[in-house]
């Protein structure tokens, strides 16, 4: 048989490594790739992509099927964090949803209490998200940053409109910023530049390029991620950062994951379809370069973890 010479890509760049946790807690390192996802024959993927399981600081308004998968654990962030750890979370992603003005409009005090509760309940690294309302994000994330002093947590979202406050909190308490931009490679790069200009090292940034779910803009996120990753591997230090995406939140917003009735029969059984919707959004984004997945359903999480195991086996 003739020997076929396989063309390999010689990338000169390397994705930065970002570390979460530490200070007596478990540590998780993400990034560090010198190749496109799972192409072990031509480069290194020293850290496997991680799954952060999303929990909330109040009972979630999620669809019934998703809430019941967690049972009574959702009633309290500490018990939910323990359940998430038992479900195999690498990281706990705590959403301070109760701070939303339309929810309970809670503030810094409650945020601090929730973060401490979760930190006490599990020894996993933490990511903390605000309610995605800039001024409330500022309030609760600054409090969260302070409450989590001593370990490295990731704080999101840090967007163009509020990055100064969040980055200042990261600088003051040694945390990682989650830089969120709306599905556009140049905006992502620009925000990273603004953040590093403030003095936060690039290895303390995770990029959130904004996630589109399967059937709802997935292809935009997918291609923006492929471009970000390739630019990073080509040596662009301001795009060569680990990428975080939120397939759980996005998939479970869609009808396909929520609606059992009033949808075409061709959509199939809701139980199976909903799980696949989240899992396939996640695995597709992993193929495009995701380093951190924020996920919701235990079954989808199990499926994605098994898939990552297979991709990482050399």
């Amino acid at each position: 048989m003739p020997v076929v010479e396989i063309p390999t890509e010689k990338w000169k760049g390397k994705i930065r490594e970002v570390t979460l946790g530490g200070g007596g807690r478990k540590t998780v390192v993400v990034g560090g790739e010198t190749t496109l996802p799972f192409l072990h024959f031509e480069g290194e993927m020293p850290n496997r992509p991680v799954i952060a399981i999303e929990i909330q600081d109040c009972e979630p308004d999620w669809t019934g099927r998703l809430v019941s998968a967690w049972g009574d654990a959702v009633k309290d962030p500490a018990s939910w964090a323990k359940a998430a750890a038992a479900a195999g979370a690498d990281v706990i992603a705590l959403s301070l949803e109760s701070a939303h003005p339309d929810n309970q409009n809670t503030g810094a005090k409650e945020a601090e209490a929730s973060v401490k509760k979760v930190l006490d309940a599990v020894d996993l690294p933490l990511m903390v998200f605000g309610p995605y309302v800039a001024e409330k994000d500022n309030e609760v994330l600054v409090a969260a940053a302070d409450a989590a002093r001593g370990t490295v947590v990731a704080l999101g979202s840090c967007e163009e409109k509020n990055f100064r406050t969040i980055v200042a909190a990261c600088l003051a308490s040694g945390h990682v910023a989650i830089a969120k931009t709306p599905i556009e490679i140049n905006l992502a790069k620009q925000l990273n530049i603004l953040i590093t200009d403030m003095g936060l090292p690039a290895d303390r940034i995770l990029m959130d390029p904004t996630t589109g779910a399967l059937g709802y803009g997935l292809e935009y996120t997918y291609s923006v991620m492929e471009r970000l990753r390739m630019a990073g591997l080509q040596g662009d230090g301001m795009t060569g950062l680990p990428i975080m995406v939120t397939p759980g939140e996005e998939a479970w917003r869609q009808k396909e994951a929520k609606a059992a009735d009033g949808v075409p029969e061709a959509w199939g059984k809701i139980e199976d379809r909903a799980i696949i919707w989240e899992a396939m959004t996640a695995t597709s984004l992993l193929l495009a370069g995701a380093d951190v997945l924020v996920m919701r359903h235990p079954k989808a999480i199990e499926l994605v973890r098994a898939t990552v195991d297979k991709w990482m086996a050399k």
Partner: peptide, 20 residues
């Protein structure tokens, strides 16, 4: 052949093969 897995796959194919 199961609609609950075929439908996500058809959707994914439509996403990936859409002309950017």
């Amino acid at each position: 052949f199961d609609p609950s897995t075929i439908y996500p796959l058809l959707t994914l194919r439509q996403n990936i093969y859409t002309d950017p």
